[in-house]
């Protein structure tokens, strides 16, 4: 986030207070953040805790301090280590939901287009594009070695000769490779209505303006067809 040359946050305290107020106003907040025994059970069961310096207990404790400064600092990087698996919520003896509280903070970061949210969403721009423009999440042509190194050494084989491989699938994929299945223009138009109404397009505009423009070009094409 914004710092001066000495590494001191230049974001005004009032803004940080506003952000915390927004979180507390969320209808889920009082249900997710109760008391805290500081017992660490949530953290003990938290998968990322094994790999990163990350602890849902600390998230909960920071929220309990009501210190807008501390909460702001967590929003920069800390809360993005969470997988949103909700193991913490299942095992907390106080019935807190640290993962849920994290979701509230992340949604604020996304809605307001914070740098942290942009950074996290950047690698997903292709997925976002497919999803919002065509209603598909992953299409066969997206499975390329560069983007899915975690799929192992056979990813090159998986991404080659897509057209032939698609023909072998018994389901009606219509043999296309740029989408998982063919989506009719009517369905797309309905989809855009939903994204408009629910504010999804606005969120994308906030976190990734250039992606937003690409999506809007497609939307306009489809709408005028």
């Amino acid at each position: 986030m914004e710092y001066d040359e000495k590494g001191v946050s230049i974001v005004p305290l009032d803004f940080k207070k506003e952000i915390f107020k927004e979180a507390r106003k969320d209808f889920r907040y009082d249900e997710y953040v109760l008391g805290c025994l500081n017992c660490g059970v949530c953290t003990g069961g938290c998968p990322p805790h094994r790999f990163f310096d990350f602890s849902p207990r600390i998230v909960l404790q920071n929220l309990k301090t009501k210190d807008p400064e501390l909460i702001w600092t967590m929003m920069d990087e800390y809360i993005w280590a969470c997988f949103q698996c909700f193991t913490c919520a299942m095992i907390c003896p106080f019935l807190n939901n640290p993962g849920g509280a994290i979701a509230i903070l992340r949604e604020i970061a996304v809605r307001r287009g914070f740098e942290s949210a942009r950074k996290v969403l950047k690698p997903y721009s292709r997925v976002l594009l497919k999803l919002t423009a065509y209603g598909n999440q992953l299409s066969p042509d997206m499975i390329q070695p560069d983007f899915f190194p975690d799929w192992g050494p056979d990813i090159s084989y998986a991404s080659a000769d897509l057209k032939v491989k698609r023909k072998a699938i018994p389901m009606p994929t219509l043999q296309i490779t740029n989408l998982s299945w063919d989506v009719s223009p009517e369905a797309m138009k309905e989809l855009y209505e939903i994204f408009d109404e629910s504010g999804v397009f606005k969120i994308i505009e906030a976190v990734d303006p250039s992606l937003y423009e690409i999506i809007m070009d497609i939307v306009e094409d489809v709408r005028s067809s």
């Binding site: 660490g40 059970v41 953290t43």
Partner: peptide, 21 residues
Amino acid sequence: GRVAEITSGPDNTVVCKGEDT
């Protein structure tokens, strides 16, 4: 720290997993 889970470990042990807070 409260133990979050007990699983079986190597060499006929039981493993306590948690956070030293």
